[in-house]
Simulated assay, not measured.
Amino acid sequence: MSVITGGKHKLIQAALRLITESRSLTSLGLRELAREAGLNPNTFYRHFSSLDEFGLNVLGYIAEEMKSGVRDLRRMAENSDQAARETVAFVYGYFLSNPAATTVAVRELHGPSPVLRRALEAQLDASAREMAEDLIDRKLVPGLSNEVIHEISNMTIRYILFRAMDYIEKPEQRTQIQQETERFINRQFKGALVEAFSPEALAEMKGGR
């Protein structure tokens, strides 16, 4: 995605400032956005053809910011446990620093705009696909099929988003939530590895204890 600058950037930042616990992206008005951004309302339509298109740009901006950071961390990881630990720490840290972005993602996934719902689902799928392809390319989870790695990556992305609001709103539980998320990811991969063994191999392993 190209870097967003100028009026587009001002409008997106204005939206993220206006979103609160009681407000969602789809509830923001054009004039309100322009006023918060310090722009003429007519400027909006120089950059976006509709509020849905604006919403797509907001979601894209959030996704690209997060994905670029996660991508760099996974490339430095030496094993799946390290990748899980550092990715979880980064993503929850991003949520904490950008609560409005998190609110957008959580709410619009079940919000009134079908365009934004589909876009957010597509972004979650893309993030999961990138996570899986990186794990496969770097051989961080040997012994698992590509199909299983993609399946677990998909579940992982959605689990993290599911826990995002709790992480923001319950500071006393943040360490616990982070640890639970790491365990969730590691158990998915390790459980899948056990499933990949034949019954004979598992019996032999048990017998060798």
Rank of each mutant, 00 (worst) to 15 (best):
L109W: 12
L116W: 07
G55M: 07
L51M: 11
K190S: 14
V58Y: 04
E180T: 11
A101M: 11
R117F: 03
N98L: 09
R31L: 02
Q13Y: 00
A63T: 08
L96W: 05
K139H: 10
L33Q: 04
R35L: 06
R138Q: 15
P114A: 14
D52E: 11
A126Q: 14
S22P: 01
A100D: 08
D52I: 05
E64M: 04
L18M: 14
E86C: 08
G69L: 03
A119T: 06
E21K: 03
E78W: 10
L73Y: 10
T156W: 02
M205N: 13
Q123R: 13
K139V: 12
D52N: 13
T102I: 07
Q82C: 05
L30D: 03
A83Q: 09
S49G: 14
A14M: 05
R163I: 00
R46D: 11
E108N: 00
R129P: 05
A164I: 00
V91H: 03
L73Q: 10
I136C: 08
A126K: 14
A37V: 02
G191W: 13
L124I: 11
N154R: 15
R117T: 10
E32L: 01
G143M: 05
R174G: 02
I19L: 11
Q179D: 13
R158Q: 07
S97R: 15
L144A: 09
N42T: 15
K190M: 10
E180K: 11
A37L: 02
A63I: 01
R183C: 11
G69F: 05
Y45V: 12
L120N: 08
S145G: 13
M76E: 15
T175I: 12
S145E: 10
P99H: 08
Q173G: 04
M66I: 06
I160K: 14
H9G: 00
G55Q: 09
R46K: 12
G60C: 11
A192H: 14
L28C: 08
L124C: 15
L202I: 14
I160Q: 13
F189L: 12
A83S: 09
T20R: 08
L11T: 04
Q82I: 13
E169S: 07
S68V: 15
S2G: 07
A84N: 01
R138G: 04
R138V: 11
N98M: 09
E172Y: 03
L28N: 07
S22M: 05
G29I: 04
E36G: 03
K190D: 15
N98F: 05
L135N: 01
A100P: 02
A84G: 01
I160E: 14
L116S: 08
I160W: 01
M66P: 03
A100I: 03
R71T: 12
N57P: 02
V141N: 00
K190I: 12
E53L: 03
